[in-house]
Lab assay of single mutants.
Amino acid sequence: MLEGKVKWSNSEKGFGFIEVEGQDDVFVHFSAIQGEGFKTLEEGQAVSFEIVEGNRGPQAANVTKEA
């Protein structure tokens, strides 16, 4: 699992980007967020995730919010 911080997200469009130190930003779709209820990410929020190869390149999977 990698750790990063949410660079920005748009809940209306359903995606955002995660900033990882020393690496390119990672695309995240809201379907990759683990948990119940409305899935949102806040700018600056710490997250853990895996990287998978998506249709348009690397993207985050199994995203969990850190406490």
Results as ranks from 00 to 15, higher is better:
residue 2 L to E: 04
residue 11 S to G: 09
residue 26 V to G: 00
residue 36 E to Q: 11
residue 61 A to P: 00
residue 60 A to T: 01
residue 23 Q to E: 08
residue 47 V to M: 03
residue 50 E to D: 08
residue 53 E to W: 15
residue 63 V to M: 03
residue 38 F to I: 13
residue 25 D to P: 06
residue 14 G to K: 12
residue 10 N to M: 06
residue 39 K to T: 09
residue 18 I to S: 01
residue 19 E to C: 13
residue 25 D to C: 09
residue 57 G to I: 02
residue 15 F to V: 03
residue 35 G to K: 04
residue 67 A to M: 12
residue 22 G to M: 05
residue 18 I to P: 01
residue 56 R to S: 08
residue 13 K to S: 06
residue 25 D to H: 04
residue 40 T to I: 11
residue 7 K to E: 01
residue 23 Q to S: 10
residue 19 E to D: 05
residue 66 E to V: 15
residue 40 T to V: 11
residue 62 N to A: 06
residue 33 I to S: 03
residue 44 G to Q: 04
residue 4 G to C: 06
residue 6 V to Q: 01
residue 22 G to I: 03
residue 47 V to L: 06
residue 63 V to R: 01
residue 43 E to F: 13
residue 60 A to Q: 00
residue 18 I to Q: 01
residue 23 Q to F: 13
residue 26 V to C: 06
residue 65 K to F: 14
residue 14 G to Y: 09
residue 65 K to I: 15
residue 29 H to K: 05
residue 9 S to Y: 15
residue 49 F to C: 02
residue 32 A to D: 08
residue 23 Q to L: 11
residue 33 I to T: 03
residue 19 E to Y: 11
residue 51 I to N: 01
residue 14 G to L: 09
residue 24 D to T: 09
residue 64 T to R: 15
residue 48 S to K: 14
residue 41 L to A: 02
residue 8 W to Y: 13
residue 1 M to W: 12
residue 62 N to R: 10
residue 44 G to H: 05
residue 47 V to Q: 01
residue 57 G to F: 04
residue 40 T to M: 10
residue 6 V to W: 07
residue 63 V to C: 04
residue 7 K to L: 04
residue 56 R to M: 09
residue 46 A to I: 15
residue 45 Q to E: 13
residue 20 V to G: 02
residue 2 L to V: 11
residue 54 G to Q: 04
residue 49 F to L: 04
residue 45 Q to V: 09
residue 9 S to F: 15
residue 27 F to W: 06
residue 52 V to G: 03
residue 13 K to F: 09
residue 15 F to I: 07
residue 48 S to Y: 14
residue 24 D to K: 14
residue 48 S to T: 13
residue 13 K to H: 07
residue 17 F to P: 00
residue 41 L to M: 07
residue 29 H to D: 05
residue 44 G to S: 04
residue 25 D to W: 08
residue 52 V to H: 07
residue 19 E to H: 11
residue 51 I to D: 01
residue 56 R to Q: 08
residue 27 F to T: 02
residue 30 F to M: 05
residue 30 F to G: 01
residue 12 E to G: 10
residue 52 V to T: 07
residue 42 E to D: 10
residue 62 N to G: 05
residue 2 L to H: 10
residue 10 N to V: 05
residue 20 V to R: 07
residue 16 G to F: 14
residue 67 A to R: 12
residue 47 V to A: 03
residue 26 V to M: 03
residue 6 V to P: 00
residue 27 F to C: 08
residue 18 I to D: 01
residue 67 A to D: 12
residue 5 K to G: 03
residue 8 W to T: 00
residue 16 G to Q: 02
residue 1 M to S: 09
residue 31 S to N: 07
residue 24 D to C: 14
residue 65 K to N: 06
residue 64 T to A: 08
residue 37 G to H: 08
residue 35 G to E: 08
residue 33 I to V: 11
residue 5 K to I: 14
residue 12 E to H: 11
residue 24 D to A: 14
residue 22 G to D: 06
residue 64 T to K: 14
residue 15 F to R: 00
residue 11 S to T: 13
residue 1 M to L: 12
residue 19 E to F: 10
residue 1 M to T: 12
residue 50 E to G: 05
residue 7 K to W: 05
residue 42 E to T: 12
residue 8 W to H: 03
residue 8 W to S: 00
residue 23 Q to R: 14
residue 33 I to D: 03
residue 60 A to Y: 02
residue 29 H to A: 07
residue 56 R to F: 13
residue 38 F to C: 14
residue 32 A to K: 06
residue 37 G to A: 09
residue 48 S to D: 02
residue 7 K to G: 03
residue 21 E to F: 12
residue 33 I to C: 05
residue 21 E to D: 11
residue 43 E to D: 08
residue 26 V to L: 08
residue 37 G to K: 08
residue 30 F to N: 02
residue 9 S to C: 15
residue 44 G to M: 03
residue 59 Q to A: 07
residue 10 N to F: 08
residue 45 Q to I: 09
residue 22 G to K: 04
residue 54 G to I: 05
residue 37 G to R: 06
residue 17 F to I: 04
residue 35 G to L: 05
residue 51 I to A: 02
residue 38 F to S: 12
residue 36 E to T: 12
residue 64 T to S: 10
residue 2 L to R: 11
residue 56 R to E: 05
residue 55 N to H: 14
residue 16 G to W: 15
residue 63 V to D: 00
residue 50 E to F: 13
residue 34 Q to S: 10
residue 1 M to C: 13
residue 25 D to A: 05
residue 19 E to T: 10
residue 46 A to V: 14
residue 13 K to N: 05
residue 9 S to L: 15
residue 63 V to N: 01
residue 32 A to P: 02
residue 47 V to T: 02
residue 21 E to P: 13
residue 36 E to D: 12
residue 5 K to C: 13
residue 11 S to R: 14
residue 59 Q to F: 09
residue 64 T to G: 05
residue 53 E to Q: 14
residue 59 Q to M: 12
residue 50 E to N: 13
residue 55 N to I: 14
residue 10 N to Y: 06
residue 6 V to E: 00
residue 59 Q to E: 11
residue 49 F to Q: 01
residue 46 A to F: 14
residue 59 Q to S: 05
residue 26 V to D: 00
residue 55 N to T: 14
residue 61 A to V: 12
residue 60 A to L: 02
residue 42 E to H: 13
residue 66 E to G: 14
residue 22 G to N: 07
residue 58 P to A: 07
residue 46 A to C: 14
residue 18 I to Y: 03
residue 28 V to F: 15
residue 24 D to W: 09
residue 33 I to G: 04
residue 39 K to V: 09
residue 63 V to K: 02
residue 39 K to L: 10
residue 3 E to D: 09
residue 59 Q to Y: 11
residue 28 V to Y: 14
residue 59 Q to K: 08
residue 62 N to E: 04
residue 6 V to N: 01
residue 31 S to T: 09
residue 1 M to D: 03
residue 21 E to V: 11
residue 31 S to G: 07
residue 27 F to D: 00
residue 15 F to M: 03
residue 65 K to E: 04
residue 8 W to M: 02
residue 66 E to Q: 15
residue 55 N to F: 15
residue 66 E to K: 15
residue 32 A to Y: 07
residue 57 G to M: 03
residue 41 L to Y: 04
residue 41 L to T: 01
residue 62 N to Y: 08
residue 6 V to F: 05
residue 42 E to G: 08
residue 25 D to E: 04
residue 34 Q to G: 08
residue 20 V to E: 00
residue 49 F to W: 00
residue 51 I to S: 02
residue 61 A to Y: 09
residue 61 A to D: 05
residue 65 K to A: 11
residue 38 F to P: 14
residue 49 F to V: 00
residue 5 K to S: 06
residue 60 A to P: 02
residue 34 Q to T: 13
residue 5 K to R: 13
residue 22 G to H: 03
residue 56 R to T: 07
residue 40 T to A: 08
residue 2 L to W: 13
residue 31 S to K: 05
residue 66 E to H: 15
residue 64 T to C: 09
residue 60 A to V: 03
residue 24 D to N: 12
residue 29 H to C: 13
residue 27 F to H: 01
residue 4 G to M: 04
residue 32 A to F: 06
residue 51 I to F: 03
residue 40 T to K: 09
residue 10 N to Q: 05
residue 4 G to V: 03
residue 43 E to T: 14
residue 32 A to W: 07
residue 66 E to Y: 15
residue 4 G to D: 02
residue 9 S to D: 00
residue 21 E to W: 12
residue 37 G to E: 09
residue 67 A to F: 13
residue 9 S to K: 13
residue 65 K to V: 15
residue 10 N to L: 07
residue 30 F to S: 02
residue 26 V to R: 02
residue 39 K to Q: 14
residue 23 Q to T: 07
residue 40 T to E: 08
residue 56 R to W: 15
residue 3 E to I: 15
residue 22 G to A: 04
residue 5 K to E: 03
residue 40 T to N: 09
residue 26 V to N: 00
residue 32 A to C: 08
residue 25 D to S: 05
residue 13 K to R: 11
residue 21 E to T: 10
residue 15 F to G: 02
residue 27 F to N: 01
residue 61 A to W: 10
residue 28 V to H: 03
residue 49 F to T: 00
residue 55 N to K: 14
residue 32 A to T: 07
residue 63 V to L: 07
residue 47 V to K: 00
residue 46 A to Y: 15
residue 55 N to G: 10
residue 13 K to M: 09
residue 67 A to K: 12
residue 52 V to I: 12
